[in-house]
Design a protein around this nucleic acid. Structure first.
Lengths: 350, 350
DNA sequence: TCCCTGGACTGAAGCGCTTCACTAACGCGC
DNA sequence: GCGCGTTAGTGAAGCGCTTCAGTCCAGGGA
């Protein structure tokens, strides 16, 4: 947008041959014939400018293609009003959370920055990136880091952990009552006549220890402690594949398997199907998460559904709440899940 | 800054009861007994400090828990060295791209910022966010925006579009040779004896127009123009579901369907399976993308695989290349895909 | 008349960093 | 003993914004 106005303004607008200098507030101010201060007020929606001036300034900004510079604002304000969200791109379950987080944060006037952990980029690094962008609040979706590290973070920013239980009072946590989900699954299987129910756990993955404990407890409640069988795993398809191979290599399959999550369940399903083990005829399988795949008819997985929207909403509210009012005790918010029965579970084989 | 000297040492470090003032370069400088300038040099890995001093400064920084402030750096440098990546959280295919993008950008000394489009947050907004964080380069993964808008963006930042062809010379693009992928699919089906091959297209979704054209061309080459059948759709499971219902409502099914992408294929598969239409006995299905689901044995989808790593790597290189050397012509980089034959295609029914 | 209030607006300082232009000290060759 | 180039280091300006402390000018009591 070149000098489309009185030549007096031209200097501020003309840019050195092709090199577009990004317009600043000063440019807008000059063009609208007011001070930078006033422009700033207007862009922050603060009172102090007449409606007439306000319009004139906004129009000038528009003509120049002006865009506020967050970095500068952040620096000047000393506050960023930004929430950093740690995600794991491969955990599809998190996709739903993100949408809600954006919406909720925006409503409260906060920015959101995403940082993904990936094979080439460990969680630590992803979090540091968020911190160096001055995020005031960190929302960590299923973080794998050690508790000590998370606790350390807590005095650099407000930390909220989603989907993982943490020792008492470390930081705010929002999660699903994993124990209940597992208990429902076991109850369901027992009702169908299963007794030999194995569990492929998720190792150190978020939620896993709780699920494992809940499995043990539920089995005990049904007097099935003798049939307890925990196969070490992870929350990945590969772990499911490995577990299935382990089971197939033995004399006798259990009649049902509780997977650590959906992805693991799908790994199991995959191997069993290829090996012509009928699911649920020969063996029943239960997942956890109710991700987008679970409901596909070719998969049709019995699984435990989490209230993703609730999780996300509360995570944001915790973060913001603590930001605006520091002296709350760390909270642990727990949402009930429920079992979704589909085609991978059926009566125990004889 | 206060009188940062003698007694100030203590002041800089002690924080006013709980309220952690984040340490700055000045704090580090004071503690190490050097100037701020020198600290800055050291943190930018520039020469001009002796090894001995360097160590001392780094140690001081460490003791203070100092963390560089990107916002300030960005402001001061006038350059952000940041690439903004637009993603769609639900397009699982993109997850793989992201990992590579991070790695590649980091190697070149660039930061990466992610911004997701979501139901509550349209693409436009997601892109503006990136811009206001001063991203110098924008990498748009399968953007849906109109060409004009994308062109407009190009003079605010360096733009690279991934996975979508754009009219000549608009901006840099990196994409798969969709035409080839489709041609391979059609050839494969024809070899299996198929003649009635329908195509569920992706409407305006990225890559879709190319795929549709390629389908028409391939059918023509096989003298099958009479059997051409395009069913309007989208790159989602729902579109596949709808298309399947459309087909089932007719007298006679085609013997094969080319879906716009894997997700659409899975929708088709889902409905056919529930309707007891045998795949591939009654009808063959081909997808596109080879996403994580395609290879699951319960799905086992014949599909076209894209070289995600190559796409991501070139996208980053384009962006950076143009950033460091402005006067290149817009490029259109095309990578060959290849057909992965799995279980959803078979001989045409009699 | 004078003082006060409040609305509209401005000037200047400062956020934490980079960078340009310097200075001081130290060989080194002649 | 002089100028020279290097290395190690410093001071200050300035990036684009916010914000504190004013200024200026109605209009309204008393």
């Amino acid at each position: 947008m070149l000098d489309d106005r009185a030549t007096a303004h031209a200097d501020a607008e003309r840019s050195p041959a092709g090199l577009h200098r990004r317009p600043t507030m000063a440019d807008v101010a000059t063009r609208a014939g007011v001070s930078r201060t006033l422009v700033s007020l207007i862009f922050s929606n603060k009172p102090g400018a007449s409606d007439e001036t306000r319009d004139r300034v906004l129009q000038a900004a528009d003509e120049l293609g002006y865009r506020l510079d967050r970095a500068a604002r952040m620096l000047a304000r000393g506050r960023s009003r930004t929430l950093g969200v740690l995600i794991d791109v491969h955990q599809t379950f998190q996709a739903d959370l993100i949408g809600t987080i954006y919406a909720e944060a925006e409503a409260a006037g906060y920015e959101v920055l995403l940082s993904a952990s990936a094979p080439s980029r460990d969680e630590h690094k992803a979090i540091e990136a968020l911190l160096s962008h001055r995020c005031e609040g960190l929302i960590l979706l299923g973080p794998l880091s050690e508790v000590d590290y998370l606790r350390t973070l807590a005095d650099r920013a407000v930390v909220t952990v989603v989907g993982r239980a943490l020792p008492h009072g470390a930081v705010d946590t929002v999660r699903t009552a994993d124990a209940k989900g597992i208990r429902q699954s076991v109850d369901h299987l027992v009702e169908l006549g299963h007794r030999e129910i194995a569990h492929v756990d998720g190792g150190a993955d978020p939620g896993s220890p709780e699920r494992r404990r809940a499995y043990l407890a539920a089995m005990r409640r049904h007097d099935l402690s003798d049939h307890v069988r925990v196969i070490p795993g992870q929350h990945t398809e590969e772990a499911g594949v490995a577990a299935a191979h382990t089971l197939l290599a033995e004399d006798r399959l259990p009649t049902a398997v509780l997977a650590g999550n959906d992805r693991c369940a799908i790994g199991l399903l995959d191997v069993f199907t290829r090996a012509h083990v009928d699911v649920p005829g020969d063996i029943s399988i239960v997942g956890y998460d109710d991700g987008p795949l679970a409901q596909l008819s070719r998969i049709d997985l019995t699984t435990v559904r989490q209230d993703t929207e609730g999780l996300a909403r509360h995570a944001v509210q915790f973060a913001i709440g603590r930001l605006e009012n520091d002296d709350l005790d760390p909270q642990d918010f727990v949402i009930d899940p429920h079992l979704v029965v589909r085609g991978t579970t059926g009566p125990a084989r004889a």
